[in-house]
């Protein structure tokens, strides 16, 4: 079986639709992960009783088990159990967001812990209000340093989106699969899907490395 350029080009429009879905999944999933991860990190940092312990176990549990099974459990078990029916796409966004929030929460935690104790003490010595200590002193120092790690996890999430084809999300890999199903030729669409991931994630990881050199890392 040889590479067929004509067929490869023909399959591009179909792939393009999938590429769009993959990008949407990544952007929305990442936004959810950034926000939810910060919530997890703050709950643990502030030490809200019971909730804090629950978040700890939840984070460790989600981090240690496969995303694919979490997706299945959420889609086939949890949604019917609570009487909602979300689209495969929305299910994907939520599960990507939740799964990666357990990573980003660790990133935020490390970023906050990296701030020297002297900064907290100096802020207290100056009687700066608690909320302002966070927004004025701690976060401005912590946020730049967590950006590279958040970037890395976003790239990881991007590359993990294809597993959502298990519940029928038509991402780039699923589009490639469909293109192949019509013609029984899979080499071109699957290869193009791989090239797409490389074309996005390689430059992105170079950018992250540049950022890392600029702002340091946690």
């Amino acid at each position: 079986m040889d590479w067929d350029w004509e067929y490869a080009i023909d399959s591009l429009p179909l792939l393009a639709e999938g590429i769009l879905v993959t990008i949407e999944l990544t952007v929305l999933g990442a936004l959810l992960a950034y926000v939810l991860g910060l919530v997890f990190a703050m709950i643990r940092r502030v030490g809200v009783p019971v909730l804090s312990q629950f978040v700890y176990l939840f984070v460790e549990f989600i981090r240690s088990t496969p995303l694919l099974i979490q997706v299945f459990a959420f889609y086939y078990l949890l949604q019917p159990a609570i009487g909602v029916k979300l689209s495969p796409f929305l299910t994907g966004v939520i599960m990507l967001g939740v799964h990666y929030a357990t990573y980003t929460s660790e990133v935020y935690r490390a970023g906050i812990e990296a701030i020297p104790k002297g900064q907290w003490e100096a802020a207290r010595a100056l009687s700066i209000p608690r909320g302002r200590v966070w927004t004025g002193v701690i976060l401005p120092q912590a946020v730049p340093r967590v950006l590279p790690a958040l970037g890395n996890y976003t790239i990881s999430m991007f590359k993990e989106t294809p597993l959502l084809l298990a519940i029928g999300v038509v991402d780039v890999l699923n589009s490639a699969k469909e293109a192949g199903a019509e013609t029984f030729r899979v080499i071109e669409p699957y290869t193009l899907a791989g090239v797409f991931f490389l074309l996005v994630s390689y430059p992105a990881s170079i950018l992250v490395r540049k950022l890392e050199r600029r702002v340091g890392t946690v």
């Binding site: 991007f158 590359k159 993990e160 989106t161 294809p162 597993l163 890999l173 490639a176 699969k177 192949g180 899979v186 080499i187 699957y190 290869t191 899907a193 791989g194 090239v195 991931f197 490389l198 994630s201 390689y202 990881s205």
Partner: peptide, 14 residues
């Protein structure tokens, strides 16, 4: 740089 899923599909189907 290429997704693990794509690698799996490539190795197994292509």
């Amino acid at each position: 740089g290429t997704s693990e899923m794509v690698q799996l599909f490539w190795l197994y189907f292509v």
